[in-house]
């Protein structure tokens, strides 16, 4: 059987914790935007959920995830179908997708912001990307989030400055729909793993990373977290998982994803 590693980085711990989000998905398109989410989806596909589908981040579906970054000249990716951007929407709207992304704000309803901060809508203080595909993603299929820096600017008090994605906010619930139609799965951060499975879809602590305290998580979250009586420690990667991650990320891009690339077990 697999054995838990003792020497791993926090990024690797997060990749493994985030991969768990895809374990029971069955045959859906796993879209991980950013290094940690992409490695998480790839690890899940290469280990416990081989039914996952994945793209090359451009226009083809792959039967085997691509390693990140520059690849050898003789590398041939394992195409299985064309999947241009127009077809991505057909997939999104069918619901057979689970995306993991890193929004700039996540409020207590699980609503997220990718667009603008501060000021007014006509003249925001900081303009970011725009709503992108978040409105459609959030109402059509499952979504998870990765946050490399867990703090009260991301998990902020109040409501997002701009709501890019629908969450569990009763005041915004469209007529004829139920909050249970919204499907937010895992929230993986540099401190812990959470979901929105608390009372009335309150954010809930699932596990604490090694050495992290409940108080530290709550202090860095701008709203109350539901805390079960038993909160385990986030499971350590296995040696096998670390080897697969290293193979998927030969240029070690994961080392640049969390500030100072700390070890998984706090010193």
């Amino acid at each position: 059987m697999s054995t838990a590693a003792t020497d791993y980085t926090l990024a690797e711990l997060c990749i493994v914790a985030a991969a768990e989000a895809f374990r029971h998905d069955g045959e859906v398109l796993a879209t991980g935007i950013g290094v940690v989410p992409r490695l998480a989806a790839s690890l899940a596909m290469k280990t416990f959920n081989p039914d996952l589908m994945m793209t090359d981040s451009e226009a083809f579906m792959l039967s085997e995830p691509n390693p990140l970054g520059k690849r050898p000249a003789d590398f041939q990716q394992a195409n299985e179908s064309w999947m241009g951007f127009s077809r991505i929407f057909d997939n999104v709207w069918s619901g057979k997708r689970h995306a993991m992304l890193g929004p700039t704000q996540i409020d207590r309803f699980g609503q997220t912001n990718t667009s603008a901060l501060g000021g007014t809508y006509q003249q925001p203080k900081v303009m970011m990307l725009g709503a992108r595909g978040f409105p459609g993603n959030s109402i059509c299929h499952a979504n998870s989030f990765f946050v490399p820096g867990h703090n009260t600017r991301v998990f902020m008090d109040g409501e997002c400055d701009f709501v890019s994605s629908i969450g569990y906010n009763p005041a915004r619930l469209p007529r004829g729909r139920s909050l249970d139609d919204v499907d937010i799965r895992r929230v993986v951060t540099n401190l812990c793993v959470m979901d929105f499975g608390g009372p009335e879809h309150q954010i809930r602590l699932l596990s604490l990373h090694p050495g992290v305290t409940l108080e530290e998580v709550q202090e860095n979250t701008g709203y109350p977290i539901a805390v079960p009586s038993d909160v385990p420690t986030t499971p350590a990667p296995t040696a096998e998982q670390l080897a697969i991650i290293a193979g998927l990320d030969p240029h070690n891009q994961r080392a640049a994803q969390i500030a100072d690339n700390p070890p998984g077990i706090r010193a």
């Binding site: 929407f89 709207w93 667009s115 709503a131 409105p135 459609g136 994605s165």
Partner: peptide
């Protein structure tokens, strides 16, 4: 400011001579 897919639907509606296309995309958001 709209969703990426809403833009596709708006272009399709224009291409097909429709005033609009119904969708759930955008509901509950800004």
């Amino acid at each position: 400011e709209i969703d990426e897919g809403m833009m596709l639907l708006g272009l399709r509606a224009a291409a097909w001579g429709l005033p609009f296309i119904p969708t759930e995309v955008g509901l509950g958001t800004d």
